[in-house]
Design a binder for these strands. Structure first.
Lengths: 235, 235
DNA sequence: GCGCACAATATTGTATACAATGTTATGGCA
DNA sequence: TGCCATAACATTGTATACAATATTGTGCGC
């Protein structure tokens, strides 16, 4: 039996769609290189191509996808050079931001961070690696938010989205995703309002991540957009 | 005699329009708060609203303009808090980028920077303060380019555009725009491949700029879009 | 004259139609 | 069979039509 159409919840906005795609990319449900056809997406979300286009342009500005003229939108495939650039930028921004966060953090903030970690562990336990990855990214964004630097937080947000693509392409499997420990230590430093230590920990955490990149590029794969994005278990 | 219509060179692309608007804002020909009507712009550039919209969305992503739903696009009016954030972000990124630039710079790069300064002086001499401001921004972007960090350069690019708005709103006139001297010193450090000094100079240059901001917000003014954007001397 | 309700207008939001371009399939020819 | 030209198709680019919303203007009652 073929499942056809079903226009979807509809009334989706450009932001909704951009978020959904962004999250799907974060969680590695959409692989680098995957084509994002406008008609496909408008069918899936039940809106016109106009809206889809707006969403795609937004993602293109974040360099999460690449729009090739007359060819369409594709999930970005950062080069190795870009990969290094992204992590170098993160190394400039995040350590000092972690320091600010440590100085600003309230108990509520710390609780929220702990909550993040808990969810991260839960996702790991259920084997949902993609979700764990997404949450570990959110952790970094949360720290930027706590630092109350919206401008910097926005930049980090974009860098983390790109990092997710980089991890999808260049991660060497040997180095197990041992983020949890680093994140735990960070929370402690932040909870203690120890700015210097938070900065230091973030710095080394990023260096760890950066050095865990590999040199050989992986090929891009095609996916069933609807299944990847809606994830409903119809077969 | 009233000058009407004249659809303009036409065949303008979204990028063309975004650049034109961006530059106009850089040069303070478009004041913060100015409304950018879609019909106005499509008339001016001779394209459909579709293209104009794409351009506006692009600028909105850079936070150069603000799009209010069902209200339209307006040149952004950064709050004082945002102003500080922008300069704090620049202080995180630019000094170290200047260091990289100093280490990477070729004689050609230095020549190009000197050329920039020359043009800046020329604009100053002809009293074209707007153009001088634009060029001094480009100077910073050029340094990021020399550092060969495209990702960071893009971020700095956006920050500088926002800085231009901030200067329009919060600049205290007393402190004369003495950028030239700081820029000269920077070029020297870069030409000597003296990374440490370049970083130091950039840092203090940014602190100078940051501390030259004022506290009282200026009101926004309306402008004749066509005249501001096309600048052709028809009266 | 002032304030409010409501109508008229203008502007943006969304969908759709058509044009331009790229991709794929087909068929002739060597 | 293999290759190229060309036609059929699919997809994106742009313009326009219509709907939804905000803004402005008008007139009535007080």
């Amino acid at each position: 039996m073929q499942t056809t159409a079903k226009p979807m919840p509809t009334n989706a906005t450009a932001d909704t769609i951009a978020s959904a795609l962004s999250q799907a990319i974060h969680e590695h449900r959409l692989a680098p290189g995957t084509k994002l056809g406008e008609d496909d997406l408008s069918d899936i979300y039940g809106v016109s191509r106009t809206i889809v286009r707006t969403a795609l342009q937004s993602l293109a500005h974040q360099q999460i996808i690449e729009i090739k003229r007359n060819r369409g939108a594709f999930v970005a495939q950062p080069s190795l050079a870009e990969a290094h650039e992204v992590f170098e930028a993160r190394e400039l921004l995040e350590p000092r931001t972690a320091r600010s966060a440590a100085l600003n953090a309230t108990p509520d903030d710390v609780a929220l961070l702990n909550d993040h970690i808990t969810q991260e562990h839960a996702a790991m336990d259920t084997g949902d690696r993609g979700r764990a990855l997404f949450l570990s990214g959110q952790f970094h964004i949360e720290i930027a938010r706590i630092a109350q630097q919206k401008t910097i937080a926005d930049m980090i947000n974009v860098l983390i989205a790109r990092s997710s693509l980089i991890i999808a392409l260049y991660w060497r499997r040997e180095s197990a995703l041992c983020e949890s420990q680093a994140h735990h230590a960070l929370i402690k430093a932040i909870g203690d309002n120890d700015g210097a230590r938070a900065e230091e920990l973030m710095q080394s955490h990023l260096v760890d991540l950066h050095s865990a990149l590999n040199l050989n590029e992986l090929p891009a794969v095609e996916h069933d957009l609807r299944a990847m994005l809606l994830g409903d278990g119809k077969r």
